[in-house]
């Protein structure tokens, strides 16, 4: 009983972070109003059915009464209600779908690519350049953003319920959807198509923020690194060991494009797509044996000495 109360409390704590009921964007608002309409129509129909059933159970038919007449009107009314209700739902869902599918001229385009098991995110920066980051999507409030959804290996699905419905990411195909964030705050997205062993640890942090704040963030992401003091040792290990083969740190010798871009890795809230919080300890643990934190992940373990791993973790922590 106590455990139940605790779980309920804990779950209540999550409320809103990843929920289609807590609308934070225009597309989710369209969907929730469609959902409400369906709830009303179906709820009323359900109530009527139960009422008729109850009435039929309670009422006794008198022996003299053999005519079916009185019910014909009632039946006609019932059929009419169903017909109208269904037509209403069809028209409403058609209109909602059409408004979701509309392509307007958008000022900002973002590519989101699903990998096993993380998200590559690229912002269009004009003149054909793209600013790359990973596992964290920032959106300016009130601005429609066109998302280009792609997949590098298997089918994934992009789903941030507070902002919009699901859309699959399919290898060999580009799916497009527009999202407009309205409410500032952090929201949680999750891959919604089973994509392998670590599918559950493929989360996406989404932040909707004021336009000015967003512009500052994007400018920060576009910068190459300025590593802090006293981390030259870590940087050297990073560039001479395996890391640089797979990871990019713009402005240094590390130019790998296989794994997440680490140029501003420490500015993120979590590592490995929401698997562990961004702390010195989890960074060091991840560097030594990622398989212990996210079993099955395609980042291999490194055979760095504890000192080297410590130095690399300190270096990565300065990449803000």
């Amino acid at each position: 009983m106590r455990a139940f109360a605790l779980i309920t409390l804990l779950l209540a704590g999550c409320a809103g972070q990843q929920s289609a009921m807590h609308v934070a964007g225009d597309q989710a608002a369209t969907l929730i109003s469609l959902f409400r309409l369906m709830m009303w129509v179906c709820g009323i129909a359900y109530l009527l059915v139960i009422l008729f059933l109850g009435w039929g159970l309670i009422r006794r038919r008198s022996a003299a009464d053999t005519s079916e007449q009185p019910y014909h009107k009632l039946m006609a009314g019932w059929v009419g209600f169903i017909l109208l209700g269904l037509i209403l739902l069809v028209v409403a869902s058609f209109l909602a779908d059409r408004s979701l599918g509309q392509r307007q001229q958008v000022p900002l385009q973002v590519r989101v690519t699903g990998h096993q098991w993380w998200w590559r995110i690229e912002y269009q920066a004009g003149n054909g350049r793209w600013i790359e980051t990973a596992n964290e999507l920032h959106l300016p409030a009130g601005v429609p953003v066109l998302l280009e959804l792609r997949a590098a290996d298997v089918i994934h699905s992009f789903w941030v319920p507070n902002l919009a419905g699901k859309m699959d990411m399919i290898p060999g195909k580009i799916n497009r959807m527009t999202v407009t964030g309205r409410t500032n705050g952090w929201f949680r997205g999750q891959c919604a198509e089973f994509c392998g062993t670590q599918h559950a640890n493929m989360a996406l942090a989404v932040k909707v923020e004021q336009v000015g704040e967003f512009d500052r963030w994007l400018a920060g992401q576009a910068r190459p690194v300025s590593p802090g003091e006293g981390v030259a040792a870590g940087r050297k290990v990073f560039e001479s060991a395996s890391c640089a083969v797979c990871h990019q740190v713009r402005g240094t010798e590390a130019r790998g494009r296989v794994g997440p871009d680490l140029t501003h890795v420490a500015s993120r809230r979590t590592i490995a797509a929401g698997t562990a919080p961004m702390t010195h300890g989890s960074l060091r643990g991840w560097i030594i044996q990622p398989q212990a934190i996210k079993p099955g992940t395609s980042m291999p373990p490194s055979d760095l000495s504890p000192q080297d791993a410590e130095a690399v973790a300190s270096y990565l922590e300065t990449l803000r």
Binding site: R150, A151, P171, G256, R257
Partner: peptide, 9 residues
């Protein structure tokens, strides 16, 4: 992706 190359899927 191939080491330093990524053209997109």
């Amino acid at each position: 992706p191939t080491a330093g190359q990524w053209q997109g899927p």
